[in-house]
Design a protein around this nucleic acid. Structure first.
Lengths: 332, 332
DNA sequence: CTGAAAGCGCTTACAG
DNA sequence: CTGAAAGCGCTTACAG
């Protein structure tokens, strides 16, 4: 392979001069620069980034941890993150943890090896326990899409999930619903809290018994949880599902139970995924500012890398919005 | 940061010895090894992978190009690829091209810089034109999920898309349909050819006029194309959509046109995505061996990296299968 | 089994 | 504005 030395010889200069024209850090006489550039072109020289990284200590690569890439939410996080990185000339090292703590731990441990300049961890599933591994790391770390309590040492760019739940609750309240049940993933306690707060504002209580846990965010789990909820609370006029896919399952279960939506039963969901738009009726859901979140998180990381300034003030929470569609209606 | 030299001093040996215990390539006396390992633990030494890469010429990183990560198909490719890489101790550098030729070109060009050991390119959208950039590359390249003609110089692991179309056609034929229309993405000519072949086997012709192009694989485009098809061919009893999401749009358009599925109109799709399972009626669709494909492609790459053997025989095509669900029925 | 030397291809001060 | 030197942290033959 052709090295900087080869280019230098061809151009009749030393390799430091070639380095100078490439980096632009030191001015080079135009005639010399022209000779160097010509030599680069003739030889088809491409700098060896590994060697550069060893010398500079920077790989221009950022690590991204996501639980999975096969949900619209994380797919968007990945693509938005990549766009911002690309704009800054950085590359993306991807790791999907699959909500597998051991896998996450192993990969986290492998990151100490100087191969990335910064790390973005999106989503807390299975990771929280292993975060201490990152405490002595020498590159900046930012957390995003974080729904549980995060260690104070890391900046976190996330959504106000509690408010998301609140919006869902307020929406049902505004439609006159008083008797409701909730289908929730175990990780979604913030959403449930917010939902409850909306009812509490009107002096209404959503009892713990009205919350039905769905072990995982899947269509099947949604059907099961909805079935249980509809059986336990036959008089409920509305359902809040903490995730769209759960709500799609609920739609199915409601159909099976002979309840028509939204006339006999309103369903409000959370996350506003494409599945919710495809569902019939289309789902009323709380939309997440996914791309803004990813953009802001990577932006924070870029500034941390480039400025080497002390950590910025803890960023604020991004606000979700409710999108009313066909699955909710005034209490009949 | 602590280097190999620090470990060596602490253990009272030279850094070569430390390197030897780490690599295991050269036997080290047990007592020495114990001292070295102790020093590593005490100092919390982690090898600098960049330095190792410069010395060895290998980064243990594989690049993966996908058009996007936000379809179930490519999400699966990414996750499966990552699993296999992980098992081999390799990392994943991800690049989503977004079907943007210029973006693909730029990233492809950036790959010559010694930062990856191999490259997997999944999906041909926007890339075919830029493949010559890879001709003089010094790392192995494998193509997968390739639906158009690929340059002969690269091994390609892909699906028999023509056969997929054939399966869809044969299915409709077996159900007695003779008068059909097709909704196709421009890139899906193989699928359409196969579909036609199934009809041709029975001496039936699917005229070019029966093929309606959908500019992009989206719900909206599916609606438009289906609308056009149903208007132009009111007597068609079945539709073949070359992609599930197109078919979901077709379902909607059929409903709007007062056609009930599958009684008045059968719809067979291709790709068997989660959207097809969520649709009502559920979609009959041709399923792709996605994970097998990704696994085989990365496997090929791993062997190419590690064996340095000449390129293997061109791998065969993987076979799709038809999954019959609710959207197709015997011609009424 | 262990150590001394050279080298991977770059960058970064530092002289001139 | 250009060149000589040292160094980034590792590995790889090669002696002993």
């Amino acid at each position: 392979m052709v090295t900087m030395q080869d280019v230098a010889e061809r151009a009749g200069v030393t390799k430091q001069t070639v380095s100078n024209v490439l980096s632009g850090r030191v001015a080079v006489r135009p005639a010399t620069e022209a000779r160097v550039r010509a030599a680069i072109a003739e030889l088809g020289y491409v700098p060896n980034l590994v060697a550069r990284s060893l010398a500079t200590g920077s790989t221009r690569t950022v690590g991204l941890f996501v639980p999975t890439v096969s949900t619209a939410f994380y797919a968007e996080v990945v693509e938005e993150a990549e766009d911002v990185l690309d704009a800054h000339g950085y590359r993306l090292l991807l790791c999907t943890t699959r909500r597998d703590g051991e896998r996450a731990r192993r990969h986290l441990a492998g990151l100490t090896s100087r191969s990335i300049d910064a790390l973005l961890i999106a989503g807390d599933q299975g990771l929280t326990d292993h975060l201490p591994l990152l405490s002595r790391t020498r590159f900046p770390v930012v957390l995003c899409a974080w729904e549980t309590r995060a260690p104070a040492e890391f900046p976190v760019v996330t959504v106000d999930y509690e408010h998301g739940g609140y919006l869902a609750g307020r929406h049902l309240r505004e439609l006159g619903h008083r008797n409701v049940a909730v289908l929730a993933s175990p990780a979604h306690t913030l959403r449930v809290n917010g939902f409850r707060r909306a009812f509490a504002e009107d002096g209404l209580d959503v009892p713990a018994g009205a919350v039905h846990l769905a072990p995982e965010p899947s269509f099947r789990a949604g059907i099961e949880a909805a079935r249980a909820a509809l059986t336990a609370h036959p008089s409920a006029t509305a359902l809040f599902a903490t995730h769209d896919v759960l709500a799609v399952g609920a739609l199915e279960a409601a159909r099976d139970a002979g309840r028509s939506i939204p006339d006999d039963l309103s369903v409000v969901a959370h996350d506003d995924t494409p599945e919710g738009l495809l569902a019939r009726p289309t789902l009323t859901s709380v939309a997440l500012p996914t791309r803004e979140m990813a953009r802001e998180a990577i932006g924070l990381l870029m500034r941390a890398i480039e400025n080497t300034t002390p950590t910025e003030p803890r960023p604020g929470l991004l606000q979700p919005t409710l999108i009313a569609r066909e699955s909710t209606a005034r209490r009949g």
